[in-house]
Amino acid sequence: MAASAHGSVWGPLRLGIPGLCCRRPPLGLYARMRRLPGPEVSGRSVAAASGPGAWGTDHYCLELLRKRDYEGYLCSLLLPAESRSSVFALRAFNVELAQVKDSVSEKTIGLMRMQFWKKTVEDIYCDNPPHQPVAIELWKAVKRHNLTKRWLMKIVDEREKNLDDKAYRNIKELENYAENTQSSLLYLTLEILGIKDLHADHAASHIGKAQGIVTCLRATPYHGSRRKVFLPMDICMLHGVSQEDFLRRNQDKNVRDVIYDIASQAHLHLKHARSFHKTVPVKAFPAFLQTVSLEDFLKKIQRVDFDIFHPSLQQKNTLLPLYLYIQSWRKTY
């Protein structure tokens, strides 16, 4: 089996927390979720979201995140109150960019949308954001926290390059993509939290790379249903696996070995980020709550012996909000 052949990389499970039942964490995340308004986002309300009498641009960002990046939404709820709305805006910006690729039928249209967001970032730093909910909220975040323009532009530029429907040539190319998107998002989150620390940035770099790799793995069944495969070609070739094997949902050992190798790289990034947690300011830990969902996925895929098409991998963990709150309460990542 794939797991038994390579099992030495995987460390002990961390979500089991001995003695936790003896201490009762304060009510927090679930209460916040219940208090949030929840009407559906419609095209009509989106168009009017920044106008008078609408929910408001902040509510639009929150709803977009809740629907399109639920794990990011849950993590954002546990940030300090003064930072929450800015991170909602930042993550909503990322969602807007991420959904361009799947929402257009022609690359030219995707490039036009990316050009809109490039100009939007430029206009935000000229205090002239367009009348668009996410743009307005992002402008507020930039003004409030003096966010670095370079990180925002890196996210747009990398998403634009990724409009080509090509597999990553190697794991390094996937890591570079993750660094310029997910890690950049974390650098900006640290700025919102008021953290300027080399060790925190180092952790953000590795956690962002782990996030990018896990996202690529999780999306494999969806991409396969659209006749697309984006997994690193070098690892596929190493194990003699073709793109057609993934399109046919082949579950042979060599296919699972490909998934094992890729998942192991995410695991190593996560492990390395945690190896120097004592040197990272505690104030930075809330920015890294996504490690909970990353670890949850890596454990699940290990349990199914790296069968990327196993139905259990597509099921939401209903206990994730609780695990996130516990992680926040324990002040760790």
Results as ranks from 00 to 15, higher is better:
60 Y>H: 08
205 S>G: 08
241 V>I: 11
262 I>Q: 01
286 P>H: 08
124 I>L: 09
226 R>F: 12
319 L>P: 04
170 N>F: 05
193 L>P: 00
124 I>R: 03
174 L>Y: 00
146 N>C: 11
184 S>Y: 07
76 S>R: 02
252 D>V: 13
174 L>N: 00
50 S>E: 04
124 I>S: 03
240 G>S: 12
158 E>A: 12
193 L>H: 03
157 D>P: 00
156 V>A: 08
224 G>Y: 11
260 Y>G: 06
78 L>E: 01
283 K>W: 06
245 D>L: 08
211 Q>T: 15
302 Q>Y: 06
177 Y>V: 08
305 D>C: 04
46 V>K: 06
290 Q>K: 05
132 Q>M: 13
311 P>A: 10
89 A>Q: 01
146 N>F: 07
227 R>H: 12
180 N>F: 13
313 L>A: 04
56 G>F: 09
75 C>M: 13
182 Q>M: 11
148 T>H: 10
244 E>S: 04
316 K>A: 11
54 A>G: 09
312 S>P: 00
199 H>W: 10
46 V>G: 04
268 L>V: 06
297 F>T: 07
220 T>R: 03
159 R>A: 05
182 Q>H: 13
266 A>G: 10
160 E>F: 13
322 L>S: 05
110 G>L: 07
247 L>P: 03
279 T>G: 12
152 L>I: 15
158 E>H: 13
102 D>Q: 10
192 I>N: 02
266 A>C: 06
81 A>N: 14
254 N>V: 12
81 A>M: 15
184 S>K: 07
290 Q>H: 09
293 S>K: 03
247 L>G: 04
292 V>R: 11
80 P>G: 10
316 K>Y: 12
229 V>D: 02
292 V>W: 13
133 P>H: 15
100 V>Q: 11
186 L>K: 02
139 W>C: 10
105 S>M: 13
298 L>S: 00
151 W>N: 05
47 A>T: 14
160 E>N: 15
64 L>M: 09
90 L>A: 05
271 K>Q: 09
215 T>N: 12
56 G>M: 15
193 L>C: 10
250 N>Y: 11
61 C>Q: 04
109 I>L: 10
230 F>Y: 11
316 K>H: 10
278 K>Q: 15
330 R>D: 04
238 L>N: 14
214 V>E: 02
265 Q>E: 08
84 R>H: 11
249 R>V: 10
170 N>Y: 08
314 Q>G: 09
163 L>R: 04
99 Q>N: 14
313 L>P: 00
306 F>D: 01
299 K>G: 09
233 M>T: 06
329 W>M: 10
129 P>V: 14
257 D>R: 08
215 T>L: 13
326 I>W: 13
167 A>Y: 15
96 E>D: 09
140 K>M: 05
168 Y>L: 08
179 E>H: 10
178 A>L: 01
76 S>T: 11
266 A>W: 01
218 R>Y: 03
158 E>S: 13
205 S>A: 08
199 H>S: 07
131 H>P: 13
315 Q>W: 11
166 K>A: 15
308 I>E: 03
215 T>W: 04
256 R>M: 05
326 I>Y: 14
311 P>G: 12
74 L>I: 14
297 F>P: 00
142 V>R: 06
197 D>N: 13
143 K>R: 10
229 V>Y: 04
329 W>G: 04
73 Y>V: 02
228 K>Y: 11
176 N>S: 13
94 N>L: 03
240 G>V: 02
149 K>S: 05
247 L>N: 06
198 L>Y: 05
267 H>G: 07
235 I>Q: 06
302 Q>G: 06
290 Q>M: 09
143 K>G: 06
125 Y>A: 04
222 Y>F: 15
194 G>N: 10
90 L>M: 06
202 H>E: 05
145 H>C: 10
251 Q>C: 15
149 K>A: 06
321 P>W: 03
318 T>V: 13
203 A>M: 03
149 K>T: 03
159 R>F: 08
280 V>T: 05
242 S>C: 07
65 L>D: 00
260 Y>W: 15
249 R>A: 11
313 L>I: 11
111 L>K: 09
122 E>Q: 14
332 T>S: 14
122 E>D: 15
271 K>T: 13
315 Q>D: 12
269 H>Y: 04
123 D>F: 05
219 A>T: 08
119 K>E: 11
277 H>L: 07
227 R>M: 10
290 Q>E: 10
85 S>D: 11
206 H>R: 04
302 Q>D: 06
310 H>D: 12
123 D>E: 11
287 A>Y: 01
215 T>D: 08
124 I>V: 11
101 K>G: 13
89 A>W: 02
62 L>E: 06
319 L>R: 13
46 V>M: 09
132 Q>D: 08
58 D>C: 07
276 F>G: 08
182 Q>V: 15
99 Q>S: 12
49 A>M: 11
107 K>C: 11
171 I>T: 08
77 L>G: 03
87 V>H: 13
145 H>P: 00
120 T>P: 02
215 T>I: 07
196 K>R: 15
237 M>Q: 07
278 K>V: 15
207 I>N: 01
279 T>A: 11
320 L>V: 07
199 H>F: 11
185 L>T: 08
